[in-house]
Nucleic acid binder design. Structure first.
Lengths: 230, 230
DNA sequence: TAATAAAATAAACACTGTATATTTACAGTG
DNA sequence: CACTGTAAATATACAGTGTTTATTTTATTA
């Protein structure tokens, strides 16, 4: 017998906990996330949180899934703002929205791609749906380039066998794309991610070329390398 | 008045603390670093550590400097193992040693380039010498390519003005190279770093192309893009 | 209304980094 | 040698953390 409706002061405590967590992450960084601090702000006691999340890691996982969803929305909206047949335009839009999201939500970016929580390792099976979806914008465009015979990736290493079941799971969340397109998307993603992660984590020297110019240059060379006749 | 020689059981406690810290980082990860655990293992009390490091962050900074030094040694040794005039060979050697070091010391890699310590931000001025030196292997080869007129980087964005003093400081530790070479090195570094960081932090899907093949492909395309006539 | 089950709290445990006061042990000097 | 000043260790304590257990409150349902 579940107790369906409650008349407590905080209507949806599960969501309120996550909201407060995001607020504190935005203020003090993901590393300083504290259950007791969340409880204090919500004027409840810390163990009450355990009615909604079995432990701190479960809360972090829920936050990561939300972050991936927000990130995926961003990517898909950027893609769909460009004409369906303008594949290069879509590629650019996805690329710029990547950096834009990271700079707008550096803490969420760090939460997903950094390792700011002591001892936390994201459970792949739980995170996969939202993570796969967030990459699907890029993969879809690469796959359309491939279908249109505009994808330039000679000498690209071959896919290692034996992971078909796993890939099918991934496809269930991201869409029915070729695994070759996913591999090419991965290496493009690593380039974008390399630059952005250095920028977000302040590991770029504060001299030389500025971040956004460097990013534009990198986007151009990605397109030059992977899109035929550009 | 310094008390020079001691007959305590632990001769060089400062080094012993760092050694124990590395040992624990290797065992349980950088995030789980604990002064009290270090003290326990050394059979001293936790506040004793404060005689050698003003606080935990200072210890972390010392560890990061050591890690950068180890990383820089790796890079320079890899470079110097190739003939001085074989610039492409040197570039490749540096690139492969980057991934090799990261996979051999994933915890050190995370300590430097991730953000595993809650609330810790590396003090740039203290870390700069070893960090600049660790990048100098790559920058030196790029600069030699530039001097030999073999560096291919048309349309590369121009350097932003106003940071000359800062760059001079950097040069003091890394060597007398052109700032243009540094900028190109940065973007090459970001590509290598993008792939390796995804691999080390387990953020690459366990299907598709395997890490080392992908890395080889990326190295080849870096050389194709930036080295004239290759 | 009484029974039941869910959700909150209270209290405690084992940790953490760090500050303060105190003790111990050594180096230099009379 | 004894004395003294200081460096380095300890003892103790404080405020914070995640988490567990037992207890109480509260809301729903029979």
């Amino acid at each position: 017998m579940v107790r369906p409706s409650k008349k407590t002061q905080i209507q949806n405590l599960q969501e309120a906990i996550k909201d407060t967590a995001w607020k504190q992450i935005a203020e003090t960084g993901a590393a300083a996330l504290s259950l007791r601090a969340i409880a204090r702000e919500l004027k409840i006691t810390a163990p009450a949180i355990y009615n909604y999340f079995p432990d701190r890691d479960a809360l972090v996982t829920a936050l990561i899934i939300d972050a991936y969803t927000s990130f995926g929305d961003y990517q898909l909206i950027a893609r769909d703002a460009q004409a369906e047949d303008d594949l290069v335009g879509r590629l650019k839009a996805i690329g710029f929205s990547y950096r834009q999201w990271a700079l707008e939500y550096p803490q969420r970016y760090q939460l997903i791609f950094g390792t700011p929580i002591p001892g936390y390792q994201a459970p792949m099976m739980e995170v996969l749906p939202s993570a796969a979806r967030s990459l699907s914008a890029l993969v879809s465009v690469i796959d359309e380039l491939r279908i249109a015979n505009k994808l330039q990736a000679e000498n690209f290493p071959s896919v290692q066998p034996g992971y078909e079941p796993m890939f099918d799971v991934w496809r269930g969340f991201a869409g029915d794309y070729d695994i070759f397109s996913l591999s090419v998307a991965m290496i493009i993603w690593s380039r974008v991610h390399g630059l952005v992660s250095l920028e977000v984590s302040n590991n770029m020297p504060p001299f030389g070329v500025d971040g956004s110019s460097l990013y534009r240059y990198e986007m151009e060379s990605i397109i030059n390398q992977f899109v035929k006749g550009s």
